[in-house]
Write a protein that binds this DNA or RNA. Structure first.
Lengths: 161, 161
DNA sequence: TATTGTTATACTCTATAACTATA
DNA sequence: TATAGTTATAGAGTATAACAATA
């Protein structure tokens, strides 16, 4: 993934003007949990994208594939609400996943408006490879924050989520 | 902020096809800390943006204003590296902040290439209002996840960050 | 040669609105 | 009237590349 220096090391080498060498202060940012959350979340997405690059899968696509796999036959509306993906965005994502022959849409007998979503055989196979890469990412994530902190965060956020 | 239903309630009402009413499974997503992190981070940004709407300030702008306030006179390069904002993006953000008379750029005597960044008087005044709204957001955040969890997350992530 | 700041392009994600076909 | 899906547009954020001025 793209190399990211820690706040401290970045600040240390951030010279180039009159105040060169003095570490930058976070200021009030230090009181905002959202700031730290955002930084970690960016790290995660960057590592995920880099790790999954061989399969050309983005985080949002990955989550859609997993939820279809776990809930075959459900509608776009159901998947979208579950993951908080706008239906407009999901429609275009599914076109792309259909183009790659990973997802199939079948018409739903009970309601002609809705499509039932399934993984194709090819999609299942691809998801196997994708899952192995995703596990590698998760391991790297745990190593990055420390296994203990990773577990603590998981417990805190999963119980909440 | 924009109303977001919980995973559970969204799943409950996600009907409309043959499997209507059955809650959707997270599948392997349940094993990814990044998924829960992302969901919480989205909540935070949406609440932040909604709370700060009266001042028309986005999270990235807010972080830049705070870091300039805490480190007056530093260069764009220093601020950008500190916050991991691309210099190209920061240049355009600063144009906008300059247009609103919140930030001033002065040339740096020691290095004619770099600009020293400062808040204007108007900028300080605006930041005062912004900070009060941001505190309201942070309180809402703590209420959302629970005060105890908010503190635990802050401790975990700040120590790490 | 490398760095600071700028402009430009392209892609992703988010947020809307408008449209169709069904219900 | 409301819902499922589609198409289109606009605004952010991210990632590059190329450039001028300066170091």
């Amino acid at each position: 993934m793209k190399r990211r220096r820690s706040i401290r090391s970045a600040a240390k080498s951030a010279g180039g003007n009159g105040a060169a060498g003095k570490a930058l202060a976070l200021g009030q940012l230090d009181r905002h949990l959202g700031y730290f959350l955002r930084r970690l979340q960016l790290w995660v997405f960057q590592d995920f994208i880099a790790t999954l690059r061989p399969m050309r899968v983005r985080p949002a696509q990955y989550s859609v594939l997993l939820v279809i796999a776990a809930n075959p036959g459900r509608s776009q509306a159901a998947i979208g609400q579950m993951l908080d993906v706008e239906r407009a965005r999901l429609a275009r994502m599914l076109h792309e996943l259909e183009r790659r022959r990973w997802v199939a849409r079948r018409s739903n007998g009970a309601d002609a408006r809705s499509h039932s979503l399934y993984l194709t055989g090819e999609g299942e196979k691809a998801l196997g490879k994708i899952t192995r890469l995703a596990e590698r990412h998760e391991a790297r994530f745990a190593a990055h924050v420390g296994g203990r902190r990773h577990a603590q965060l998981m417990a805190l956020l999963r119980e909440f989520g």
